[in-house]
Design a protein around this nucleic acid. Structure first.
Lengths: 331, 331
DNA sequence: CTTATCACTCTCCATGGTCGAGCGCTAACC
DNA sequence: GGTTAGCGCTCGACCATGGAGAGTGATAAG
């Protein structure tokens, strides 16, 4: 599967991708020549390009047009990117943002997505993921009506989970208070997602169903404990010139489950291309995301842009924002 | 300002708008003739159309093309719409949705926006607005770090407000508990937005600054207590055929403040056109929204679509969803 | 394996001509 | 006065044509 390249092939592939990123046009042998500074003739380049095409790294829109790199070429390119460095000015801007912003988790992540979007000019996302490693800090049951209540759980990272509980039979305020206290004792301080007391024995028998319903709701709240924040969607109109692609991107961003799955991948920084996300091969889309380091919440931030983006810049920005966000949340 | 029309002018204007809604093309005198069933000749229609153009109700893309209605024409048209009636099947679908859905306020509104979007095929929004008429049901201060805490307020309608508090000096857990209890006593059961106790006299003097900071945060939480939920943005790609318009719509949807302002208008149902929202006159955009009736939260739901939409259908759907949502929240 | 050369292919764009839709105008009509 | 019939005019949509330019692939020689 893995094709082996000599140095020149490698240079040419790199130039092909970079020129295409720069211009958006099919890349001619001449352009590759100028970009690489290779001391060979156009014909040689053309031979190599033809070989690359045979191997699936490039296509021609038509005979006698230049080459356009395929996803495979982009994949190779990003896999062989050198290390990236964040420009100091950019770094400062990010640090400035996080030192001045004063928001609770949800709004902080939304603001982070907005920042990332503004800096990269692509739509951006931020998520908190999974209940791993979080502890319950506060637990409340708030009665809304005779037979409905709202469960509110706050974790040590500042995440607030809500869940509606509907009781089979009406419950009085005092009864509910007792249930709240009893369940609260059991869960506050514990890990989120830990097994909650199986049998509440020391409670009025006729309140047992209520406790059970509350505990069930709590478990439900825990399982769906991942929030997605999206920012800068309006950037799309200048990023893609094609309504179909815009629609696909909007669908991805709106499909919360799908987006969370995309972002649930490996720790560290990852680059995923449309074809690797189960999208149509020809969808011009790449997701660059990075996990937020640090003790607390498992989170991830990223951007969603076209395949032809300035990866070095974007990667360093995403990682920079991610790092600073981690520092911020750790404090 | 208000032009006076005889019956025929009125019919023609109505036909002009409806034909344009139907086809999206400039409307010819012939098309008006067929649509109205008026027993007059084309020349007469043309005279009237020319008059309408003079009065600013229509424009020609070029000499010898049909007429396209202007915003002014649409405004006139929607102001003179007859009463709308919801189809029974649609009504049932809405009722079915609300009787089966089991979510807390935030997710309920998100789901409502999604429903509305799916039914109308336009992007949809739902908001809770202002603190008017809401009472505080629960009040919590959750410590996140030595000098930071999270304020969580739950209202009787099930809305959860959060606000981060950063203290000047570190605070111990027991101290914070006392502050929580003290402030809680003062605000639970009171109207949200009511003046909160000006001077806490019966509290340790060295805790006073902490109380003050908590109260300040509480007030801040109250003032920004309006949440915006958006659904079905991916519909945009099939609604508008123009990236610029899509971008403008995305900007409107993302500009939370702007969107809330748009939706903060008069009670009942309203239709607002781009030109009336401070957007470029030529932006093809209309917002149909309706306030959620009922005792509880002041809310509003709506859709954002092109000017040429089937207003009767959309209005009845928006109102239907709004009504059912009101019923649901009232219970 | 690399290079120079050349014919070939394909897109892009400007040109020009035809067609038809749909208007405005004018003069006649009720 | 409002309404009508008729006619000429205008303009965009569509299509075929052809030339220019870009860039390739192939071939044959170094």
């Amino acid at each position: 599967m893995e094709d082996v390249f000599d140095d020149r092939r490698d240079d040419i592939l790199k130039a092909l991708v970079e020129e295409h990123i720069r211009t958006g046009e099919p890349v001619s042998s001449r352009a590759v020549l100028d970009a690489t500074g290779l001391g060979v003739s156009g014909a040689t380049i053309r031979n190599d390009l033809a070989a690359l095409e045979r191997d699936g790294y490039a296509v021609q829109p038509h005979t006698s047009a230049g080459r356009v790199p395929t996803s495979k070429a982009y994949r190779y390119y990003v896999d062989h990117l050198g290390p990236t460095r964040l420009r100091v000015a950019t770094q400062n801007r990010i640090a400035g943002f996080f030192s001045s912003v004063q928001l609770e988790l949800g709004r902080l992540l939304k603001a982070t997505a907005d920042l990332l979007s503004e800096m990269t000019h692509f739509p951006a996302v931020a998520v908190t993921s999974g209940p791993i490693g979080e502890q319950v800090r506060a637990f409340n049951v708030v009665q809304l009506a005779a037979n409905t209540a709202l469960l509110v759980v706050v974790t040590n990272s500042g995440r607030v989970c809500q869940e509606l509980v509907r009781f089979q039979a009406p419950v009085t305020a005092t009864e509910l208070d007792r249930v709240e206290e009893r369940v609260g004792q059991a869960v506050v301080g514990c890990d989120l997602g830990a097994e909650v007391m199986p049998t509440p024995s020391d409670v009025d028998p006729h309140l047992r169903p209520v406790v059970k319903e509350v505990v069930e709701a709590l478990r439900k709240a825990e399982t769906r404990s991942a929030d997605l924040y999206v920012g800068g969607t309006h950037q799309m109109a200048s990023v893609w010139d094609n309504l179909n692609t815009v629609q696909r991107v909007l669908e991805v961003l709106e499909g919360e489950a799908r987006m969370l799955e995309i972002l649930a991948r490996s720790p560290g920084t990852s680059i995923q291309l449309a074809s690797e996300l189960g999208l149509a091969e020809d969808t011009d889309l790449a997701v660059v995301s990075s996990s937020v380091p640090g003790s607390g919440v498992q989170g991830r931030v990223g951007v969603i842009g076209p395949m032809r983006m300035d990866y070095k810049k974007v990667i360093s920005t995403v990682e920079g924002v991610s790092r600073e966000l981690g520092d911020r949340m750790g404090s």
